[in-house]
C-alpha cells in the first residue's frame, strides 16, 4: 500500500477497499462493524441518548493524544454527561490528499484503544479524500448512541440554589497544550492534554448517588463557558471560589505569560458536576478514586442571588462577576 493517502483512496474502488481493510477494519473490527450500508443492532427498552461532534484540531497530534482519541472521547463524554452508557459509534473521515498513511494508522490505533477503554463499539464508518489544501490534514466526525441509566436525569436547567459545583480535575490543560503545540509564542512548558473518555467516571458517580442535577463536559469554551450556559439555562446564579479552582502550575505560568484566563481554556477530559451539597463530598471522594479525576474539587455553589450570572469570590474576599469570554483568545500583552 502507498505511504500516503491519495485521491484514489477516496474514489470508492479497489484502493478504497484496501484502505478500509488495512487501516480501519484492522482497528475497528467487531462483529457489528458493518460491510453493508448501515449497522444493525438490537436495542433494549429504555431511554437512549444520541449525539454527534466534528473534530478539527491543529496540530492533529499533541502531547496526551491526537485527533482520533479526541474524536472518541468527545462523543463518549457527551453521552456520558447525559448519564448514558456509550454503546455504538460511527465515524466519518475527511482526509487531505497526501496525508501520511502511518499517521492515519496511528489515529485509527488510538481510536481503537480509546473505544475499547470506553466500552463502545465502532459500528460504521465513512472515508472521503479531499484534494490537497481543501482540508487541514484530517477531519473526523463521530456520532454515538448510548443507553441512559435508569433513574439518572441531568440537564443544565436542573441546577438549584443550594447545590455545590464540582470540577473533576485541574482545568485548561487541553487548550494550553494545543496553544503550546502550535508554537506561535516560543513558550515551553510540561503540559499534556487532559483528553480522556469519562464514562467510567460518570458510572462510578451514578453508582454512588443518582441525585446529580448537572453533568457537563467542559470542552471548547472551558469551564467558565459551561458555567455561564448552566446559569442561563437554570436561571440560577453560580458563585465560584477563586482559590479553590484547581489549575496546574505550568498552565498558570503559560496563562500569566499570555494574559489568558484558565477558566476559558479548553478541556477534553473534565466534567462539571452540580449536585446537592449533601452529596458533594461523597462525589469528590468517588472522583478521586477514578483514573482521570484525582484532583477533583468543589469550586463553588449555586445561589439564588445573581440569576444567570457567574461570580467569583476573590483573594480579597470580595465578590466580582466572572468576565465572559470574547471570541478568539488573543494573548494580552499591553
Amino acid at each position: 500500500m502507498n505511504d500516503r493517502v491519495s485521491l484514489a483512496h477516496g474514489a470508492g474502488g479497489k484502493q478504497t477497499a484496501e484502505l478500509i481493510d488495512k487501516v480501519f477494519k484492522a482497528h475497528f473490527s467487531n462483529p457489528l462493524f458493518t460491510a453493508d450500508d448501515a449497522a444493525v443492532f438490537p436495542v433494549e427498552a429504555g431511554k437512549m441518548a444520541f449525539s454527534t461532534d466534528g473534530f478539527i484540531v491543529s496540530p492533529a497530534f499533541f502531547p496526551g493524544g491526537n485527533i482520533g482519541k479526541l474524536s472518541i472521547c468527545g462523543t463518549v463524554n457527551d453521552l456520558a454527561c447525559m448519564g448514558a452508557e456509550p454503546l455504538y459509534l460511527t465515524c466519518a473521515f475527511v482526509i487531505e490528499e497526501g496525508f501520511p498513511m502511518d499517521k492515519l494508522e496511528e489515529v485509527a490505533a488510538s481510536m481503537e484503544k480509546t473505544a475499547a477503554e470506553a466500552g463502545v463499539k465502532i459500528v460504521a464508518g465513512d472515508t472521503k479524500v479531499a484534494g490537497k489544501g481543501q482540508v487541514d490534514g484530517l477531519f473526523i466526525t463521530t456520532a454515538g448512541i448510548g443507553r441512559i441509566r435508569d433513574g439518572v436525569s441531568t440537564s443544565g436547567a436542573f441546577a438549584k440554589p443550594g447545590d455545590a459545583v464540582i470540577v473533576s480535575g485541574d482545568i485548561g490543560r487541553h487548550g494550553c497544550t494545543i496553544l503550546l503545540a502550535r508554537d506561535e509564542f516560543g513558550i515551553d512548558a510540561q503540559v499534556t492534554s487532559d483528553c480522556a473518555p469519562l464514562w467510567g467516571t460518570v458510572k462510578a458517580m451514578t453508582d454512588a448517588t443518582q441525585d446529580i442535577h448537572v453533568i457537563r463536559d467542559a470542552t471548547r469554551g472551558g469551564v467558565g463557558t459551561v458555567l455561564y450556559e448552566v446559569a442561563e439555562q437554570s436561571g440560577a446564579g453560580i458563585r465560584l471560589f477563586a482559590e479553590d479552582i484547581p489549575v496546574q502550575d505550568s498552565v498558570k505560568g503559560v496563562c500569566g505569560m499570555l494574559g489568558l484566563e484558565p477558566l476559558y481554556l479548553a478541556c477534553e477530559g473534565r466534567l462539571v458536576i452540580i449536585a446537592p451539597k449533601e452529596h458533594a463530598q461523597e462525589l469528590v471522594d468517588v472522583l478521586k478514586q477514578c483514573p482521570y479525576s484525582q484532583d477533583a474539587a468543589i469550586i463553588g455553589e449555586v445561589t439564588g442571588d445573581m440569576p444567570g450570572r457567574v461570580t467569583m469570590v476573590t483573594e480579597l474576599g470580595t465578590e466580582t462577576i466572572l468576565s465572559r469570554p470574547t471570541g478568539e483568545l488573543l494573548p494580552r500583552i499591553c
Binding site: T314, E315, L316, T318, E319, T320
Partner: peptide, 9 residues
C-alpha cells in the same frame, strides 16, 4: 481592580 473586586472594600 475589577478582577479583584477592590471597589467592594
Amino acid at each position: 481592580l475589577f478582577r479583584l473586586g477592590v471597589r467592594g472594600i
